[in-house]
């Protein structure tokens, strides 16, 4: 059975690992939104160079495993003289990864806004950028937020992969204590519990955000 002494003793240390996991998740969420929005707009761009770059980025990320992407950034790039360290490599890798998935979600949301909205905005003299910012994106957001939230939940869980590039987040913290305690069951159950706390809190927050964007909707 569970060794409760171990749990009580090590829980605070794992919670600290969970804080780093949360920090990495939030940073790569922000990065993923920036990459995602840029790639979505890029894919909708009339400029063929911009469009090709966006298509290539999305294809590249979605057709390769995240673990390999992280290894290329952390272990591969130093060979080219680019040594980013575990923290930046992890956040960048996760951000790039979730960004590619976000891009398709955001693009779908933008395209689901009826074309009449764009026409009405342009007929009032709005530039295409202003129409996108004031008219199209706010409406797309309603459609985008639930699937983006999903991507974020997956991202939180995927952060466990950065334990392989020596970033001492929740999973690697647990692993390290297993080395000294020989209690893998307790350690991994605690880690799983803390991941569940993070993902569940995130989905509760997202539910609130979703409700807030629903104003005026039919």
């Amino acid at each position: 059975m569970l060794d409760w002494n171990i749990i009580v003793h090590y829980f605070p240390f794992l919670a600290k690992g969970a804080l780093l996991t949360l920090e990495i998740s939030i940073l790569s969420l922000i990065l993923g939104l920036v990459f995602g929005l840029s790639a979505a707009l890029g894919k909708l761009s009339r400029n063929i160079v911009v469009r090709s770059m966006a298509v290539f980025y999305i294809w590249l990320i979605r057709s390769t495993p995240l673990l390999v992407q992280l290894f290329i950034i952390y272990f591969g790039l130093p060979q080219l003289g680019i040594d980013l360290g575990p923290y930046i490599s992890g956040v960048l890798g996760l951000g790039l990864n979730v960004g590619a998935y976000n891009a398709e979600t955001i693009r779908g949301g933008i395209q689901s806004v009826p074309s009449g909205q764009q026409e009405a905005a342009r007929s009032l003299g709005m530039s295409s950028a202003l129409a996108m910012r004031r008219i199209i994106l706010p409406q797309a957001l309603r459609i985008i937020i639930p699937p983006l939230g999903n991507n974020f939940i997956i991202l939180i869980k995927d952060t466990s992969l950065v334990s392989t590039i020596t970033l001492v987040e929740l999973t690697l913290t647990a692993q390290r204590f297993i080395g000294s305690t020989y209690k893998p069951f307790e350690m991994y159950v605690m880690a799983a519990f803390l991941y569940a706390v993070l993902t569940t809190s995130a989905s509760l927050l997202l539910g609130k955000l979703e409700a807030r964007t629903k104003k005026g909707s039919r």
Binding site: G116, Q117, E119, A120, S123, G125, Q139, G216
Partner: peptide
């Protein structure tokens, strides 16, 4: 041309069959 068009469109109101009001605004 885009800038010119935006300027011209400010002086030319248009009303559509499907109204096209912005649903997220009052």
């Amino acid at each position: 041309f885009e800038k010119h068009l935006n300027r011209v469109r400010c002086k030319l109101g248009m009303v559509f069959q499907q109204f096209n009001l912005f649903p997220h605004m009052t």
